[in-house]
């Protein structure tokens, strides 16, 4: 900017002004002026050898660098795709094996029933099915509640951060964590639930609700939100007692303080899937206890990370 001119408001940004106002090389204008002074046309032809060589060079540079710089990302994504494919193949395999186990177990059950009925031991058959029902190896259906718990819609400020056990859980307070689910599920057991599944995973005597990092695992399977807890129990009392006991009040406080969303619905008929892979390798029955079947519902193990 010349000193004589009135001061421009953008005088301190001459670099940017220059760049924006004269993006073209001043060289072109200067060369055109020189040519016009010596009596030639302002523009030269586009057919000089040098120009064509440079054009070829530029094209070569563009494609060469595109190829050279693209390769690493394709390699990385190929590896990632391979891993994803392997994970999916493994999961499909595991699922098909689980289905195979279920069908084999079905066969075992029918064979067992046939063997027992052949020996006319109907009492044993009845006891076996009762035990299976209590152990959670077979799908069950009955009246109950469906409780849907989900993270808060937006991050909410804690109302009373100091007096709450969740205060030290991390920055994202509106997130449902494993211990929340543990407390809620224990509240449902306490309210008289006879069978509970979380997102389709049956809670048996061996299924733990635990956290692995940010994920919630039930029976070592990761869950995705929303968490749908299905519980079978007395339709009249299950919901009411749950709302009264510690699990229900804990859920209510989560709702009030952290805007965790939850929704309890009474249903006349819900079904809870079985956990057919339940098997014990090391536990042996105590001789005196064999004849007294435990029919109480299993308590969820409250493991903490």
């Amino acid at each position: 900017m010349s000193a004589g001119a009135p001061e421009r408001p953008d005088a301190s940004m001459t670099l940017i002004t220059e760049m924006m106002e004269r993006p073209l090389d001043p060289g072109y204008a200067a060369a055109a002026e020189r040519r016009q002074e010596s009596g030639l046309s302002a523009a030269t032809g586009h057919r000089s050898t040098m120009l064509i060589i440079v054009a070829i060079l530029i094209g070569f540079l563009l494609s060469a660098s595109a190829l050279a710089l693209r390769t690493p990302t394709t390699t990385a994504s190929r590896i990632k795709q391979g891993l994803v494919a392997r994970i999916e193949a493994g999961r499909t395999h595991a699922d098909s094996q689980t289905r195979l186990i279920a069908s084999l177990r079905q066969q075992i059950n029918t064979a067992q029933a046939a063997a027992l009925s052949e020996q006319s031991q109907t009492r044993l058959t009845a006891e076996l099915s009762k035990l299976e029902l209590a152990a959670g190896t077979v799908p069950v259906t009955g009246p109950g509640v469906v409780l849907t718990v989900d993270d808060a819609a937006t991050k909410a400020e804690a109302v009373v951060p100091d007096t709450n056990p969740r205060a030290a859980t991390g920055p994202d307070q509106g997130k449902v964590i494993a211990s929340d689910l543990q407390i809620v599920v224990n509240g449902l057991w306490e309210a008289g639930a006879e069978a509970i599944s979380v997102n389709g995973h049956r809670l048996t005597s061996r299924a733990a609700i635990r956290s692995a990092g940010a994920a919630i695992l039930v029976d070592y399977r990761p869950l995705t939100r929303p968490y749908v807890i299905t519980a079978i129990g007395d339709q009249g009392s299950l919901g009411v007692e749950f709302a009264d006991n510690s699990g229900g009040s804990y859920l209510q406080s989560l709702k009030n303080n952290y805007k965790v969303r939850s929704d309890l619905k009474n249903r006349s008929s819900v079904s809870v899937p079985g956990q057919p892979t339940l098997s014990l390798q090391n536990a042996q029955p105590v001789q005196s206890a064999v004849t007294t079947p435990r029919t109480t519902a299993p308590q969820t193990k409250a493991t903490s990370p």
Binding site: Y28, A43, H46
Partner: peptide, 23 residues
């Protein structure tokens, strides 16, 4: 350089030497 050259062509002041040197 390429876009500068194209603009110079359209402005009617293209110069092959300037283009090569600028590139």
């Amino acid at each position: 350089a390429v876009f500068g050259g194209v603009r110079a062509v359209l402005d009617g002041i293209f110069n092959d030497k300037v283009f090569v040197v600028s590139f």
